[in-house]
Design a protein around this nucleic acid. Structure first.
Length: 500
RNA sequence: GCGCCGAUAGUGUAGUGGUUAUCACUAUGCGUUGCCAACGCAUAAACUCGGGUUCGAAUCCCGGUCGGCGCACCA
């Protein structure tokens, strides 16, 4: 389920997420050598480790990566702009749980802008103060991390850069099934989402040989996490950069929100078989304890309930209340062992978190799709986007800008548009220029209307990647183009080759 | 956040206090053109933003924003 939660949040949310604590560092500058340090990392908070100067530090300044603002009039209630979208899923956990009818697993995704006051937001689109994320939280049963649809991805081969692989500096090609079997990936569910991420990135247009999954080493992974894999894309300017992270964050986030908000963020999981358990039930006689102990009665009763069986059998019964031993007449307490049926338990789900950096993915898709090639001594620029992601699906071009060609071309364009295709009609300049222009923006197919269209009712379709052309009946263009766009038909089989 | 450098049409650029702000490509229009950036003519299009100095600022000064490099920070 896709949700759209608040961008602005009160401090409690970011307290629970750890962003207020961990994203905030006290920084000090040495007035002598101008170096900057984190106060909490200094051995001696009064001495500069660089130049040895004493008491040369400026006042510690809190530097937090979150943008702070104030909610409401008066300026007294602080608020923070989200540094990640993920918290929205935790904050709305109870709603989601109810939506999914109290059963595991379930998940939610969110797409939106996040904001970090980066100290050094360089490298263009790679590090921004305002960026787009798509994050999911998949809540699962910690006792069972298998995945029912794992078999669908088990044979998928991916390039993995495991912890061990990084020691050796080697990546390995491996199926997802093998990675789980060998214990390289922690469990099926994590592996399943890594695999789905891989499929998504390939479908979006990343190049096989410039994409890998790198496992976090133990020292870079958050202490509570079980396993974490980053999809990394190889880029000319930046080298390997992280574009997606998939982590098993265990129950850390939910527990942290529970502690902060006192809300019950657990799921009741019934056992397969109800379990029988003997339980000691203690019933203090409050009618008599009340008058006897007055205000202390409640504390006495509570203390009695925690006593083990053998202590209850004494006469008198001795309980400790507020550090004092109190004697109780056994007649004032009854107790018995009962067989209790336990049908299930409250558990805090674990969470698998795939987190996508949309800006970085978009940049990677563009770079991996772009190529230049020499054609008859000229450079041809091609944006070989996947059909799924092209902005223009088909261009309709009259061979020349003449009325007798324009009319049928416009008619074809209209038919294609009526099928909800994204169509570009262009009659300007030479046909060659128009082909190249469409190559540059990634248009996969160009339909050209020429004089044979008038004579024989056929048009040509040109393929962006191969520049080859086929001739098809005018009446079949819509059907053929649609099939080609869906990948249901090979280009060479869609029509007869053009003799030029 | 510090230091150094930079920012001129869509792109790449010329321009050292007074220019109608240069040139090419691109784009648009017309003509031409029988399938891969052809050609001709015309047109459109810019001084990063805010202050200041000056009779006059793209040009000099200060500040902001954005970008590059180094340091620091982050992951």
């Amino acid at each position: 389920m896709l949700i759209d939660a608040a961008v602005l949040g009160p401090p409690q949310v970011w307290e629970a997420s750890g962003h207020l604590g961990n994203f905030s560092d006290p920084l000090v500058d040495c007035t002598n050598c101008k170096n900057r340090f984190r106060l909490d990392k200094l051995d001696d908070p009064d001495t500069c480790p660089e130049c040895g100067e004493k008491n040369s530090f400026t006042e510690a300044r809190e530097f937090n990566l979150m943008f702070k603002t104030f909610i409401g009039p008066g300026g007294t209630q602080p608020g923070y702009i989200r540094p990640e979208t993920a918290q929205g899923m935790f904050v709305n956990f109870q709603r989601l749980l109810r939506h999914y009818r109290d059963r595991l697993p379930f998940g939610a995704v969110q797409i939106g802008k996040s904001y970090r006051n980066e100290i050094s937001p360089r490298q263009g689109v790679i590090r921004l103060r305002e960026f787009s994320q798509a994050e999911a939280e998949i809540f699962i049963n910690p006792r069972n991390k298998t995945h029912p649809r794992f078999i669908e991805v088990a044979d998928l081969v991916m390039t993995l850069y495991s912890k061990e692989g990084q020691e050796r500096g080697e990546t390995e090609e491996m199926t997802v099934g093998e990675a789980v079997e060998k214990g390289i990936m922690a469990h099926e569910t994590l592996a399943y989402y890594v695999a789905r991420t891989y499929q998504f990135l390939i479908e979006a247009g990343l190049s096989y040989d410039r994409l890998r999954f790198r496992q976090h080493k133990d020292d870079e992974m958050a202490h509570y996490a079980v396993d974490c894999w980053d999809a990394e894309a190889l880029l000319d300017r930046f080298g390997w950069i992280e574009i997606v992270g998939v982590a098993d964050r265990t129950d850390y986030d939910l527990k942290s929100h529970m502690a902060q908000s006192q809300a019950n963020l657990t799921v009741y999981l019934p056992f397969d078989e109800p379990r029988k358990q003997e339980k000691l039930v203690v019933k203090p006689d409050m009618k008599k304890l009340g008058p006897l102990f007055r205000k202390g009665a409640k504390a006495v009763a509570d203390a009695l309930c925690t006593l083990p069986l053998e202590d209850l059998k004494r006469d008198p019964i001795v309980v400790e209340v507020d550090g004092e031993n109190v004697e109780i007449d056994p007649a004032l307490v009854s107790f018995e062992m009962v067989d209790e049926e336990i049908r299930g338990e409250e558990i805090v789900p674990h969470v698998i978190e795939p987190s996508f950096g949309i800006d970085r993915i978009l940049y990677s898709v563009l770079e991996h799709s772009y190529r230049e090639e020499m054609v008859e001594g000229e450079t041809r620029a091609v944006l070989a986007l996947k059909n799924r992601v092209v902005p223009i699906q088909v261009a309709v071009l009259p061979l020349m800008d003449r009325v007798e060609l324009i009319a049928p071309a416009e008619e074809i364009a209209q038919i294609l548009r009526s099928l909800d295709l994204r169509v570009e009609y262009d009659s300007s300049g030479s046909i060659g220029r128009r082909y190249r222009r469409n190559d540059e923006v990634g248009t996969p197919y160009s339909v050209t209307v020429d004089y044979e269209t008038l004579e024989e009712g056929t048009v040509t379709i040109r393929d962006r990647d191969s520049m080859s052309q086929i001739r098809v009946k005018k009446d079949e263009v819509a059907e053929k183009v649609t099939a080609l766009l869906k990948g249901e038909m090979e280009f060479s089989e869609a029509g007869s080759p053009l003799q030029s």
